[in-house]
C-alpha cells in the first residue's frame, strides 16, 4: 500500500468529525442545527469583549471593583455573563508589585463566559508545561518582561474554579470613560501574559 493516498491511510480529523456528526445524528443525540448554533455563539457572542466590559467597569467603579474581587462570579453575573466553564470565577488583581498569570497544566480550562474559547497559545503543550516551572522566561518569550522585584503567582486551574486577571489600568487613561476603556483591554492581559497599553 502506498504511503500517501491508499485505503490504509488513516482518515483525516475533518473526515472523522463528519463521521462523528453523522453517527450522533443517526442515534438521535444531536441535531446539526445545535452544532451550528454552538459555533455561531462562540464565534460571535462569547469572547474577550465580555471580560473587557467587566474590567472597564472595575476600573471606573470602585464599589464594583470591590465586589468583583470579593465575589467574582456574582459581580460578573451583574453584567449578564456566566454559565458553562464559569460556574465559579475568582478575580485576582495585577499591580506593579504582584503579577498573576493563569494556566491549566492538565487540560486547557479557561473562563469561557468572560474570555470565550481559549486561544492556541494557551492550549499549546509548551505553555502548559513551562508556565509552572519558568514563568518569567515564558512571559518574556510572549513579550512581557517583568522585573526581578515583581512577585509572580501562577494560577494552575486544575478544578472547576476559573481565574480572571484584573489588569492594571495604564497611566494616562484617567480621562477615558468606561466605554472608551473597553477596546484597550485584551484577552492576553486578562490571562496575565500581557499588560494593557495606553492608546
Amino acid at each position: 500500500m502506498t504511503a500517501a493516498g491508499g485505503a490504509d491511510r488513516a482518515p483525516s480529523a475533518a473526515l472523522r468529525t463528519a463521521a462523528l456528526e453523522q453517527l450522533l445524528v443517526e442515534r438521535g443525540l444531536v441535531d446539526p442545527r445545535m452544532v451550528d448554533a454552538f459555533i455561531a455563539n462562540y464565534e460571535t457572542n462569547v469572547g474577550p469583549l465580555n471580560g473587557a466590559k467587566v474590567v472597564a467597569r472595575a476600573w471606573t467603579d470602585p464599589d464594583y471593583r470591590r465586589r468583583l474581587l470579593a465575589e467574582g462570579t456574582a459581580a460578573i453575573k451583574e453584567l449578564g455573563f456566566g454559565g458553562s466553564q464559569g460556574e465559579h470565577i475568582v478575580v485576582v488583581e495585577n499591580t506593579p508589585a504582584t503579577h498573576n498569570v493563569v494556566v491549566c497544566t492538565l487540560c486547557s480550562c479557561y473562563p469561557w463566559p468572560v474570555l470565550g474559547l481559549p486561544p492556541s497559545w494557551y492550549k499549546d503543550p509548551a505553555y502548559r508545561a513551562r508556565m509552572v516551572r519558568e514563568p518569567r522566561t515564558v512571559l518574556a518569550e510572549m513579550g512581557l518582561e517583568l522585573g526581578d522585584d515583581v512577585q509572580i503567582t501562577v494560577r494552575d486551574s486544575t478544578s472547576e474554579v476559573r481565574w480572571l486577571v484584573l489588569p492594571e489600568r495604564p497611566a494616562g487613561t484617567e480621562h477615558l470613560s468606561e466605554e472608551e476603556l473597553v477596546p484597550l483591554i485584551t484577552r492576553d492581559a486578562m490571562v496575565g501574559v500581557a499588560k494593557v497599553a495606553a492608546p
Binding site: T105, D124, A126, Y127, A129, G143
Partner: peptide, 16 residues
C-alpha cells in the same frame, strides 16, 4: 495530559 513541569516542548507560541 499531565504536562506541568515537563521538558522538551520548545518555545511557546506568541499570541496573535
Amino acid at each position: 495530559a499531565d504536562l506541568g513541569g515537563t521538558s522538551g516542548w520548545g518555545p511557546v507560541s506568541p499570541p496573535r
